[in-house]
Simulated assay, not measured.
Amino acid sequence: MSEIDLSSVRYSLLAVAAGIDGVLALLEQQSEWWEGSFGAFCLLGLVKAQLERVVKEELPAS
């Protein structure tokens, strides 16, 4: 991949991570009255952490 492609991929993954933040906030609010949302919150939090690790270690900013 060229440098331009890698920066596009990095930008896209960071945008996905930002979107996940919004979903996590909604799940946190829902957890007050829906017990199942806590499990989804934890799972999605792990996915986001893994995504951020890949961006940091595999696609570092130039």
Rank of each mutant, 00 (worst) to 15 (best):
S12L: 14
F38C: 04
S37C: 04
E32T: 10
V16M: 07
E32D: 10
S8C: 06
L51V: 05
F38G: 00
A61F: 10
A49S: 15
I20P: 05
E35H: 15
L51I: 05
F41C: 07
V16F: 09
L26F: 13
L26V: 15
S31V: 05
Y11T: 11
E32W: 01
P60A: 02
S37P: 01
V47N: 09
S62D: 13
R10V: 00
E57I: 09
A40V: 14
W33F: 13
F38H: 05
W34C: 11
G45R: 03
A15P: 00
V23T: 12
L43M: 12
A18T: 14
S12M: 14
E32C: 05
W33D: 12
V9F: 07
L44H: 02
A25S: 15
E3P: 00
R10P: 00
L24C: 03
A40F: 14
L43C: 13
V54F: 07
Q29F: 05
K48Y: 02
L6G: 00
S12P: 02
Y11N: 05
V16R: 11
K56I: 04
L14Y: 01
Y11P: 02
A15Q: 09
Q30L: 11
A18N: 12
S2F: 00
V16A: 11
A25T: 15
L59V: 13
C42P: 01
L24W: 01
L26T: 15
G19R: 12
I20H: 10
D5E: 00
V23L: 13
S8H: 07
L13C: 09
I20M: 13
L24K: 03
V23F: 07
C42Q: 14
S7C: 01
A18L: 14
S12D: 10
I4S: 01
V9E: 03
E52H: 07
F38T: 02
R10F: 00
G36E: 15
G39I: 09
S62E: 15
F41Q: 11
A61W: 08
I20F: 10
W33Q: 14
C42A: 11
A25W: 11
E52K: 12
E3S: 00
L13I: 09
L6N: 03
M1R: 04
V9K: 06
V47H: 10
A40H: 14
Q30P: 06
G45M: 04
I20R: 10
S8G: 01
L59I: 07
S31I: 09
E32I: 03
K48E: 02
L14K: 01
A61Y: 06
